[in-house]
Each structure stands twice: as C-alpha cells, then as structure tokens.
Computed example of a mutant assay.
Amino acid sequence: MKRKYKIAMVQMDTQNNKEKNLEDACAWIDEAAASGAELVCFPEVMNLIGKNTGPGGGREPIPGYSTGRLMEKAAEHGIYIHGGSITEEIPGEKRACNTSVLIGPDGRILAKYQKLHTFDITLADGRPFRESDRIRPGDAVVTAETELGCFGMSICYDVRFPELYRLLAIKGARVLFVPVSFTKETGEEHLEMLLRARAVENGCYVIAAAQTGVKPAYTAYGNSMLIDPWGKVLVRAGSETGVFYGEIDLDHADAVRRRMPSLESRRTDVYQVEEKRK
C-alpha cells in the first residue's frame, strides 16, 4: 500500500452541455496527471446540471457516456479517478440514482455507490424541495480497498448523517469522499463544520470536491476542501473553477488515531437505540 500520495480536487461549474462539461473534466485530468496526482476527484453531478443541450443525453447507465470517458482517462494516465456523481439510469424505474464511481488505474470501475440520503426539505419560503421525487436512494454502505488505502463513499447531503461515516470508518476507510453541490447559503453556514466533524470523529481524511457557479435553481458554494484526520483544513478553494492539490499521508492518519483513539473507545455494549415514534 502506498502511504503518501498527491491528490487533485477538481472544482467545476457544471452547466447544461454534457459534452462541454466532460471536455473540461478531461482537460483537468490531464493537467492533474501531469502534475503528479495519483487520485483525481470530482464534485457531485459533475457531468450535467439542467436539460442537456449537447450530445450524451440526460440520465445514463454505468458504464456509459460519462463514466466511459473517465475510465479511458484513468487507463491513459494510470491513475485513480473518483467520479463525483452522475445521474444514473435505472432500467424499469422512473426515478434515477445519484451515483458515484471509483475507477482504478487500469480503467476498471472498482466501486459504485448510490447516494443513501435524499434532500427532502421545505424551503424558507414554504416551497417543498423533494429530491426523492426524482432520485431513488441507494441501500448500501460502500468502501473500496485500493493501493492508496481504503476509501469510503458518500455524496453531498450524506454528510449530515454521522452514522454513515462511522460505519465507513469501522469498515476500514481512512479517506472519505464527499463530493458536494452545496448552496451558497447552507455552504457558508455548515459545510466546513460538517466536513471537519466527519474527519475528526473518525480519524479520516475528507476529500470534498465541489460545484461552484450559478445553477438553474441555486448558486453553488464552491470551497472544495481537503481536511486531515485532526480536522485541519489543508486545502480550500474559493469560487473559481480549476484543480486544487493536496497530499494524503496514511502514517499521519495512523498517528492521529493513536493520539485520539475514539474508534477504539466506542461503547457498543450500550449503543442500543430505541427510536421514538412520532
């Protein structure tokens, strides 16, 4: 296992031309690979936001139009690519899945994760926003063992559910993917504290590649971040698009867990929870 390596987070302003979005993504992969990155990470809905005006359609199978491009680039450069997420077509299902893939240096998909938690809220003006009307939630906690360590998979709104990340850490994850497309309002108030909490409580690195820019329904916050297991923000973007670099050091992660052994100190004998019914 490689103990120390360079990563790249790609901050995107994804819009409604899938082909243009993927061309930009591939150019950033080339740049990151040339800079020595061994892992390139993308944000949530990296390939399309809005109704597609170019080739490639809307929702798609996996492997498919978008993941196929990422798989080719991973094999071309011999690197790992975390594909943020795309909208996955599910045969026989009206709803799609918000799905993330991890691709290995040989171009094969190593892991596939479907977002567990759908963003169903009532907005400040009283209007409902129900992601579950169009996105079917997944049903599996997903980790991936690789030469770069064990990765834990999640997407955006998942970050508000700490039990998911504890399960990922228990399953061996040392690096947590949290591709996001936070709104400017919630991002300013919550994103950093949530990401740092998930890092600290689990002794893990957190990689959060983000969307930025004005979308059809909201303005994305940007601020892609790499956070270490002690909760230190190692890398933070602003609102600009581009590639942002950082380093994963698994020896540092081990040292943090020895210093703060919260995973070992869990009281599983008393964690039986009986939830209140409404």
Rank of each mutant, 00 (worst) to 15 (best):
K4E: 06
K6D: 00
V10L: 07
T14M: 06
Q15F: 10
N21D: 05
L22F: 07
E23W: 10
I29V: 14
V45E: 08
M46I: 08
N47H: 13
T53H: 09
G54H: 09
G54N: 08
P55W: 08
R59P: 06
G64F: 06
S66R: 01
G68R: 14
L70R: 06
Y80H: 10
P91L: 08
N98A: 03
T99K: 03
T99D: 00
S100E: 02
D106Y: 06
D106W: 00
A111H: 05
K112W: 02
Y113C: 08
L116E: 07
H117K: 14
D120K: 08
I121D: 02
L123A: 10
P128F: 14
R130M: 12
R134L: 07
R134G: 10
T143N: 14
A144D: 08
C156V: 06
R160L: 15
R166M: 15
L176I: 15
V178L: 08
P179F: 02
T186N: 13
E189I: 13
R196T: 13
A197H: 12
A199Y: 00
V200F: 02
A208G: 02
V214Y: 01
P216I: 09
N223G: 05
N223T: 05
S224Y: 03
L226Y: 11
L226W: 08
G231H: 06
V235M: 04
A237R: 02
G238E: 03
E240R: 14
I248Q: 05
D249K: 03
D251L: 11
H252N: 03
D254Q: 15
V256P: 05
S265F: 13
R267C: 15
T268V: 14
V270L: 13
V273S: 12
